[in-house]
Design a protein around this nucleic acid. Structure first.
Ligand code: FES
Ligand code: FES
Lengths: 149, 149
DNA sequence: CAATCTGTAACGGTTACAATGACAGTAAGC
DNA sequence: GCTTACTGTCATTGTAACCGTTACAGATTG
């Protein structure tokens, strides 16, 4: 699995923590620790799905356009990583006469697909809002000094 | 996830299908469609965990040393892939004063770990024996002509 | 001793991933 | 209308993971 799911979740939690603030891709990138172009790419998915609004030009950036408690990690997973659990490498060979060699890839495909659904089901139990709560609950020594750095 | 889990499952199902047969790494590799050295590496894990017995020298090879119905895919997953669900890439930066940037990686680590447990839980519901049954149930036009090719 | 296996490490090619640079398009402020 | 500051997107480069392959030491049989 690549890390676009992680980036999307991190960005959304950050935006949920800063309502009414237009965050630029540079600001988000600094917080996530990656390049701004990568943030813009991931935010593109989130914009098309309606989770964030974007504004170009001076004073522009990204802002949350959904309720954090209503967005589950499952939705974000499907948006960014669905189908990536199964390795691309294929076991066996469909053209072989042996039933095991010829059918194993299909069987493993089903197994991985179902396993992924189980995982998504777990992700459904978490929302952007609950993630933010957990972060805050860890302990927040600087709850009054808001800082993106 | 790399494909050692798939290779291990495929090899065990094949051995379960051929009880009392010493299969060499070459034979298994041909069935799995990979190189024999790779089979020997994966079988090394399975040997240390007691799932297969090996014999070196002439007439040697691999043979199942467990009951197929008692070996779950969960055990095999833990043996080959545990901990590989979380991307190695890290979000945020622990040294930053921002609570989100500094705590996000730890939080995602927990999320991925729990998600992996859910997945393992699903894998526990499948055994090498049940996998072989499913393969056979697909339809076996050559049930009488045993062939490894 | 010769033949046939496993066990293991090392090397090289390929592919997936992440970082970066570049640039067109758009909006705000003067 | 011009400059500035953003997004949106693509192309390129660096880098790490993965897989195939070779090589060889050790074990076992005959
Ligand atoms: S070994 Fe392949 S069908 Fe029996
Ligand atoms: S934005 Fe980082 S602690 Fe509030």
């Amino acid at each position: 699995m690549n890390s676009e799911f992680t980036i999307a979740v991190h960005s959304l939690v950050l935006l949920a923590h800063l309502p009414d603030h237009m965050a630029t891709s540079e600001e988000i990138a600094a917080n996530v620790s990656t390049h701004s172009a990568r943030i813009r790419k991931v935010m593109g998915f989130l914009r098309k799905a309606g989770y964030v609004s974007t504004k170009e030009g001076i004073g522009g950036g990204f802002i949350l356009s959904c309720k954090p408690e209503e967005v589950t990690l499952g939705e974000i997973y499907r948006l960014t990583c669905q189908g990536t659990l199964k390795p691309s490498w294929c076991s066996g060979d469909e053209s072989k006469p042996c039933m095991i060699s010829s059918k194993m890839d299909r069987l493993m495909g089903k197994v991985f697909c179902d396993a992924e659904k189980q995982m998504e089901n777990y992700f459904e139990g978490h929302t952007i809002g609950s993630m933010l709560e957990q972060i805050r609950a860890f302990e927040c020594p600087q709850s009054n000094t808001e800082s993106l750095s």
